[in-house]
Structure formats: structure tokens, C-alpha cells
Design a protein around this nucleic acid. Structure first.
Lengths: 131, 131
DNA sequence: ATTAAAAATGCAACTTTGTTGCAAAAGTAT
DNA sequence: ATACTTTTGCAACAAAGTTGCATTTTTAAT
């Protein structure tokens, strides 16, 4: 898994495990509460940053100043850049944010002069577990 | 303008003016640098919160922990809830975030069991002023 | 216009979040 | 096993956001 040319360390393994075990996207804080006793806060910040850069995780925008992170699919890791074309869903009830891997972001036509590089779509509502 | 059943105060007028004068979405910090000498930081926080609740402004999600705010159109204010169906664009060059009022967010089909309440689309790239 | 009630503001103190430099420790490759 | 590189933890900060309360400003009613 960690043949992305970076050292295999205990903290990285642990954080990766946390992501693998999670069924939803995680904020820095979520990870901190799970392992702040074992690893330093700073290490978590740096690890998330590193994972992002290597395309191991991607981040999900939010309006609550809690950027969340989720594992990327294989394509991101092997090609080195993101293929994040899926919609994210945030449940107003349980608060969980998930990747809807099967829902592609539809195309949009930008006005003349605008060039698109990335696109992000986040839907709020009630998830299937909550109703 | 401020017939949304809230007191007309100097700070609110000032902050509203800042939005009216801006050609892009503003983060808390942007507003603070423009008027921190006149009004307290806390007041700015509370004013943005109030404006949000009254539908005077809407917020734009981000991955950089800098939620930005922009004025709503009339419909939001008169009906009391958001009609924010437009795409937001963030320029990687100049860093400005703008509302593309003419670009509607296309429909998406969510998986069974999911109910949509709000939808948000943010596109990154190069804006027309930068190229 | 005055005044009483309600709402908003400023201040202080505090909590949380995020950053940086550097020495120690752990990982990698020979 | 050793030398080199990378990562980690610590400490010290800086920045961002929150809360309670006394004071001031708005509002609405007389």
C-alpha cells in the first residue's frame, strides 16, 4: 500500500488504518481523538498533508471549517493525480460525509474565458442510514 | 435593504457595504482587514452569522478552511430561504471566488435512500480576468 | 421628544486550530 | 552495522473562533 515512495512509519500505518476502518470522511479532529494519545497533533497534520500530496487521500470542501478527508481510489495513487469525479454527500442528521463513488459529477458549461481544472460537488440532506 | 427585521447598526451597514463593493466572495478575514480598526472581531463574527441566518449572504465551501461569503440575490431574502442554484468559481491564480450567477448547477441522481436538501458546486481553475 | 425595553456591541478571557524550528528518533539503503 | 535521510515530538507561537457580561445603541411606545 505504501509504495508511494515514502517511509513506512507507525503513525502513517495507524492513520491509514483509521481511514480504512472508517465508513465516512474524517476531519483532522476525528483522527486526533482516535490517536492523539499515541501520536502528536503535529504529526497528524503533517501526515494528512503528505497523504494529500501523494494522492492517497482527497479532501472535501465544507462550510463549517472542517475539511474532511477520504481515501482515494486506486487510480489516483497509480497515476499520481486525482480522478475525483464523484459527488460527496453530507447527512444533516448523523453528520457523516461520504463519497458517492457511483455518482459522477455532471458536466457544466462555464462562461467564456473560464478554464476548469477541478470540480467539487457536495450535497446535503438525509442519508440512507438516517431514513 | 435591512428590512429583514433586524436592527440597523453602523457595523452592519458597513459590512453590507463591503459586500456590495466587493466583486468576489469574502472570508471573515477579508472583512476584518477592512474594518477591524472600527469594529470588534467578535462583532464581525456575529454579523456574518446573523446575515447568514437571515439569508442576506450565503457561504461557499472550501478546502482551505476559509469559508467565504457572498450576497444572496433578492429571492433568498424575500422568501427567507436560499435559492442558491449557481456554481461558484475559485481562480487558482488570483485566488478570487465568485458566484457564476448564470451557471446553474445541473441535476444529479442520488442513490436510493438519499434525500437532497442543498447542493453546492465549486469549480477551480483560471478565471477570465487572469487569462 | 423621552423613556423603558430589547438588541447589539466591545472587552476580556479563554479554547481550539494550525504553524515553525530544531533536536532526537526511526526508517532506508548500502 | 553504519551512514544518510526522513519523520517525529516538543516547545513555543500565531491565528481563529467562542462565551459571558457590562455598556451602549436601537427600537418602539408613550
Amino acid at each position: 500500500m505504501k509504495n508511494s515512495a515514502l517511509s513506512v512509519t507507525a503513525s502513517r500505518k495507524r492513520i491509514l488504518d483509521i481511514f480504512l476502518a472508517a465508513d465516512n470522511a474524517l476531519a483532522h479532529q476525528d483522527i486526533e481523538t482516535k490517536c492523539a494519545d499515541q501520536y502528536d497533533r503535529v504529526t497528524i497534520y503533517r501526515t494528512l498533508q503528505t497523504f494529500l500530496e501523494r494522492g492517497i487521500i482527497h479532501n472535501i470542501p465544507s462550510t463549517d471549517n472542517m475539511v474532511r478527508y477520504a481515501l482515494c481510489n486506486e487510480a489516483c495513487i497509480t497515476t499520481g493525480h486525482h480522478h475525483d469525479n464523484h459527488v460527496h454527500f453530507r447527512c444533516d442528521q448523523c453528520g457523516k460525509t461520504v463519497c458517492l463513488d457511483d455518482v459522477n459529477i455532471p458536466a457544466v458549461n462555464l462562461p467564456k474565458g473560464y478554464t476548469m481544472k477541478e470540480i467539487n460537488m457536495v450535497v446535503n440532506g438525509i442519508c440512507k442510514s438516517c431514513k
